[in-house]
Simulated scan of single mutants.
Amino acid sequence: MASNSGFPIPPPADPSDEVVREFGPLLRIYKSGRIERPLVPPPVGPGHDAATGVDSKDVHLGAYSVRLYLPPAAAAAEGGASKKLPVVVYVHGGGFVAESAASPHYHRFLNELAAACPALCVSVEYRLAPEHPLPAGYEDCLAALKWALSAADPWVAAHGDLARVFVAGDSAGANACHHLAIHPDIRALKGAVLIHPWFWGSEAVGEEPRDPAFRAMGAGLWFFACPGTSDMDDPRMNPMAPGAPALGTLACERVLVCAAEGDFLRWRGRAYAEAVAAARGGGLGVGTEEAGGGGGGVELLETEGEGHVFYLFKPDCDKAKEMLDKIVVFINAP
């Protein structure tokens, strides 16, 4: 079943059905084969956003779709020799099994990001597991990035600066952004923004619990979403694992990693930022939104007192605004 926007909506629930597998609020699998994603609200359509002045539209590209966001700065510049806008390809989170570019949380955030930069944003609607196990989601994200770089859409062609293309995403989407930035086919990125990235591994980093049972539990959703994986040290889940592609080969000039104090993935994000900075032979810029990057062009923003992807659920709080300001500064830096 699909909504008017073309994005899928779940079928009505059967109260007699039985849950046989569950991953928190993200995913429930029923005995009948029905799949439910309780955390995901009904999708919202594209169009004009009165709060920001941003216009959006959906482009369907076969197995995947994208939602484009064009800020009022672009419309105001039409008819003149205007400076083009950076292009931000955004990948939503949800453990590769839930969420959508049409979710009201993401739709609001992309409207605000597009207006604040200003930037032309491309939000990717990729296929989800278990209907489409990984690497399907990775493949869709790669195809969407290549599509954006091709300037096949009139909005991108007219307003996008293809010398300033960024990938950005949260949680599983941040994981996918690493996959994009290190892919051998991609060599044209200005930067990457990884918000609360979902990485894991068999060995603990920082203050992560070292209990093997906890580590296995933390990888349970990964094994479900990617049944063909080797283990939790698969380079797609643990980019710091032995044998993973060298972090020094990331195809972007600058990297911003955002972490949250109350997120169990906090230490993994910090370790990733430190490893990328070390691979580039520079220091790590750490601090608030005023902090500058180190010599390797790598920055870490740690938000105190907040949890995983808090900015989606508390978009009006001061910490969410600080994080958005930091991302805007990062995207607009020379």
Rank of each mutant, 00 (worst) to 15 (best):
L113M: 15
P197S: 14
D185C: 04
E203G: 15
A102G: 00
V122E: 04
N175G: 05
D170R: 06
A116W: 08
A114S: 14
F109K: 03
P184K: 03
S202V: 14
C177P: 02
Y138V: 04
S171L: 08
L113D: 11
E139M: 04
A174D: 02
L194R: 02
E112D: 15
V193M: 13
A144I: 09
A144H: 05
L142P: 01
D170H: 13
F166G: 00
R108V: 10
W198I: 10
L110E: 12
H105T: 02
A188D: 15
A163Y: 06
S171A: 14
P130S: 04
Y126S: 06
R164A: 00
H159K: 09
P133Y: 09
A119S: 14
H105I: 01
G173M: 07
W147V: 05
I186A: 00
A188V: 12
E131T: 13
V167K: 01
L142R: 00
G137A: 15
S100C: 07
L113N: 11
H132N: 15
A119F: 05
H178C: 11
V167P: 00
A151D: 12
P118E: 05
P133C: 11
D153F: 02
A143L: 09
A151G: 04
A151M: 04
V122H: 00
P133F: 09
H179I: 03
A148P: 00
L120F: 09
A114L: 07
H107Q: 07
A174F: 05
G169E: 11
Y106F: 14
V122R: 00
H178E: 07
A102V: 07
E125W: 04
D140V: 04
H178I: 07
Y126T: 06
H159I: 13
L128K: 02
W147E: 02
L180W: 01
Y138M: 12
H105L: 06
A116Q: 13
P104C: 03
A119W: 02
D170M: 11
N111I: 10
K190R: 15
P118F: 09
A176L: 15
P130C: 07
D161H: 10
V165I: 06
A176F: 14
W155C: 03
H178P: 01
A157F: 08
D185S: 14
L180C: 05
L128Q: 08
P154D: 11
V193Y: 12
Y138C: 06
A148W: 00
V122Y: 03
L134F: 13
S103I: 00
G201V: 14
K146N: 08
G137N: 04
H196D: 15
A174P: 05
